[in-house]
Computed example of a mutant assay.
Amino acid sequence: MPVREEVTTAATETAQEYAGGADRPLGAFGGLMAGYGGAVCAIAGAARLTGRKVAEPTPWDVALCAGATHRLSRLVTKDAVTSPLRAPFSRFKGTTGPAELEEEVRGSGARKAVGELLTCPFCTSLWFATGFAAGLVFAPAATRLAAGTLTALTVSDLLHFARSRAQRAAGE
C-alpha cells in the first residue's frame, strides 16, 4: 500500500475512533487551523517585507484589545443582527439572554466546522485577537480607535447588566 493511502487510512480511522459515532469533522477543523496558521505566517511575512517593527504591546493595548476581542466575538457569534453571517452554517433555536441568540450548528464537514467557529465566541476570540495584534503592527491608530469603540461597547454592556440587576433588586 502506498504511503499516501496508509496515511489517509490511518487519519480516517483515527477520526472515526475519536468521534465515537458523532459528527466531528476533524479534517475540516484541521483546515481551519491551517488557514489560521497560514494567515499568521502571511501577517508575519508582510510585516517583515514592509519593514514593520513589532512593538511590545503596552498594558493599555492589551486591555483595549481584550475588551474589543470580547465584544467582537460576542457580536459575531451571538448577536441577532449578525445572524445572516451564521445562517448558512446554523439553525435558530431561541434566545439565551439579552440580545443573544442560541443557534445549532448544521451540516457536515467544512460547513459544520465553520458553523462551530461562527457560533463559538471562545473559538472566534483567537482569530479576532490575532487581527487586533496585526492591526497594531500595520495600522495602530485605526486599530486603537476600533478597539476603543468595541471596548466601550463592552463596558456599556456591563453597565446595562448592572442597572438591570439593580432595578430587579430594588423591586424585590
Rank of each mutant, 00 (worst) to 15 (best):
A34S: 12
E13S: 13
A110E: 02
L75F: 03
C120R: 14
G67L: 07
G115W: 00
E56K: 13
R106L: 13
L118E: 03
A134V: 03
V3K: 09
R144I: 05
R106I: 15
R74T: 09
A169L: 14
D23I: 10
A46H: 10
S108T: 15
A66H: 03
A139C: 09
G27Y: 01
S125H: 02
L32V: 02
V155W: 08
V114G: 02
C123G: 05
P57C: 04
E116T: 11
G107K: 06
G131A: 07
A133H: 03
H70M: 04
S73E: 03
I43R: 11
E100S: 11
D23H: 12
A80V: 09
G97L: 01
R168N: 12
A42H: 05
T12H: 10
A19M: 04
R4W: 13
W60M: 14
T82G: 05
T143H: 12
G30M: 06
G148N: 01
G21Q: 02
L136K: 05
L117R: 04
S156L: 13
R91L: 05
C120A: 15
V137F: 01
R71S: 02
H70G: 01
T151H: 00
A42D: 04
F89V: 07
L32C: 09
K53E: 15
G30R: 01
